[in-house]
Design a protein around this nucleic acid. Structure first.
Lengths: 233, 233
DNA sequence: AGCCAATATTAGGCATACCTAATATTACAT
DNA sequence: ATGTAATATTAGGTATGCCTAATATTGGCT
């Protein structure tokens, strides 16, 4: 049986761990107190206090350097990835089985992810056929494993005129998700960025359409793209 | 839109409300501090403190009488019945959709009942076809309504020789549920109590079986029965 | 090097929900 | 009516997780 996270964590601790994982990104950069406070919607003294507490625990979930930021330990990463897996499985389950729309699933998954058992996780995964992708195109980590990284970049950095496929979209803003759906900007969709203006607005041509659509910089910021998958790969 | 409970309650408060509802029974008897402490697994000073706090809230969830016990107010009953509905819907959902066995569902439902949204509740009810009964034979209250009472009595009080049908079984002991299943003592099953001995053990004949089975008093305590439903009713 | 705004920490506090120890009340038996 | 065991409350405490106010530190600009 693969070794798994055995520490009991509270909801708040879980939220900190996930936030550190997400803010730290692929390189697991140190995450600042201010960034965490912003992400979690709480004050910086509260963040400092919690990080100091977490750093003192044994085994420790974080490595905390005063004024310099925080990183997850191996144990912290395991729990954080477990929560990400729970979250993404729940999102897919809410969408495919309970027929939620894709802009409704995030909030409910954010709440439930802390409370489901391993049994529940396994049953949901079994019913969904051990899926690899959630409704927003995010990779669902394998059980007991860290997430994998994909060659996806923000739409804002994709070269003009070069074909791309939408890899994933952020699940954090329900309003943004509704607008993305309305415009047809969903995972798997092929597109080409034709123009960007000074304000960051994008002119984008979708698939076989001839008329480009206008996408605001805020909305573009929610989209990650990748090179199209060729038939040979 | 039916008026619903608008107070935000914590998990602990929810647990108190449900415990008071269940211990108070059909007549909504006053529930003692000691009974609540036993049911919730905490000390009596903690119960006293919480009941005093709940009684002071506006609108109040309980009516508390020092040394005499506690009852739910209308608002307290509404929230308590809502949790019962959540619990029973979740149990059926875990059983029918996620393929949990009937002895596994209680613990998971006990945890999740606090956190599901109204949306989740509605989707689950829709998928299950607005069911009326949970896997243990308990009535699932209608949304926004109190539970209904049925003419069911403990097996220990059913007259000898009189045909009965199992109405519901307690969901609190997983071991008891496994034993009940092994013996075939499940909701809907017809039976006749042939004999009781001084220790409370029952000799029971099931359905068309000719050989009676032996049921301990503890196990019998988990079973509620009713007169068989005739073809005319 | 010095200034200053932003970031971050420290100190003290509040609310929630439980604990133990000490004390008060109740109800039952005699 | 009295005694006593069980029930229940009061008083003070701990842990968790957030808050504000005051203070310290950092990094960028001049």
């Amino acid at each position: 049986m693969p070794k798994q996270s055995t520490l009991a964590t509270t909801e708040s601790v879980d939220d900190y761990l996930k936030a550190i994982l997400e803010l730290g990104g692929a390189e697991a950069s140190q995450v600042t107190t201010n960034a965490l406070a912003g992400r979690l919607g709480i004050r910086t003294p509260s963040v400092t206090g919690m990080l100091q507490k977490l750093a003192l625990q044994r085994p420790s979930l974080v490595v905390y350097e005063k004024h310099r930021g925080v990183r997850l330990t191996a144990a912290g990463k395991r729990r954080a990835w477990e929560l990400v897996r729970h979250h993404r499985l729940l999102e897919l389950f809410l969408h495919d089985v309970l027929k939620y729309s894709w802009d409704e699933v995030h909030e409910e998954a954010e709440r439930l992810e802390h409370f489901i058992s391993e049994r529940f996780e396994d049953r949901v995964a079994a019913i969904l056929g051990d899926p690899e992708i959630d409704p927003h195109g995010h990779v669902i980590p394998q059980k007991y494993e860290a997430g994998v990284l994909r060659d996806e970049v923000p739409l804002a950095r994709w070269p003009l005129g070069t074909p791309a496929t939408i890899s994933s979209v952020s699940d954090r803003s329900a309003a943004a998700l509704r607008e993305l759906e309305r415009l047809g900007l969903m995972p798997g969709v092929a597109l080409t960025v034709e123009r960007r203006n000074a304000a960051g607005s994008h002119s984008i041509r979708l698939g076989a359409h001839t008329e480009p659509i206008r996408v605001s910089s805020d909305l573009a910021a929610c989209v990650l793209v990748a090179a199209p998958v060729t038939a040979l790969s």
